Computed example of a mutant assay.
Amino acid sequence: MYIVYLYIDILVSYCCHLIQGFTTYAERRIVEVVQGEERATLNMGIGWRGLNRMMERFKDNMEFTKLKPKMAGIDPDDVYSEVPYEKGFQFLWRIEREIGRPAFDEFLKKYIATFKFQSIDTETFLEFLKTNVPGIENKIDLHLWVEGTGIPPDAMEPDSATYKKICSLAAEFKSGKLPSEDEVAKWSGQEWELYIENLPADVEASQVWALIKYQCYLSFIGISSVLLHMTIVIDKILEKGTVEYLIVHTTILEYFTIADKTSASDAICQLIPLLTQGALIIDGDEPTNAPELPKKAKAKKKRSKEPLIVRIMQTREGLKLGISCLKYGSAKISFGRYTIGQA
Rank of each mutant, 00 (worst) to 15 (best):
Y2W: 12
Y5R: 14
Y7I: 15
I8W: 08
V12A: 03
C15P: 09
H17T: 15
L18D: 10
T23I: 05
T24I: 06
E27I: 09
G36H: 00
N43E: 13
M44E: 13
G47Y: 02
R49C: 05
N52E: 12
R57N: 06
K59H: 13
N61G: 05
N61I: 03
M62L: 15
D75A: 08
D75R: 10
E82T: 10
F89N: 06
P102D: 10
I120E: 08
T122Q: 15
T122G: 13
E123M: 09
E127A: 08
I136C: 05
L144R: 15
M156L: 15
E157H: 08
T162L: 12
Y163R: 09
I166A: 00
L178Y: 10
A185W: 03
S188W: 00
Q190T: 12
N198H: 10
L199K: 02
E204H: 09
A205P: 07
S206K: 11
W209V: 14
K213N: 12
Q215R: 11
V226F: 11
L227H: 05
L228I: 10
V233Q: 12
V233T: 13
K236Y: 08
L238D: 04
L246M: 12
I247M: 11
V248G: 02
H249I: 01
T250D: 13
Y255K: 00
F256A: 03
F256G: 04
A259D: 05
K261D: 13
T262R: 11
T262Q: 10
D266A: 14
A267C: 09
C269P: 00
L271F: 00
L274Q: 04
L274G: 01
T276R: 15
L280P: 10
P287I: 04
N289R: 07
L293G: 05
K298M: 11
A299S: 12
R303A: 08
R303K: 11
L321K: 02
L321P: 01
L326W: 07
L326H: 03
K327W: 04
K332C: 09
I333K: 01
I340E: 06
I340D: 00
G341V: 02
Q342S: 14
Q342M: 09
A343N: 10
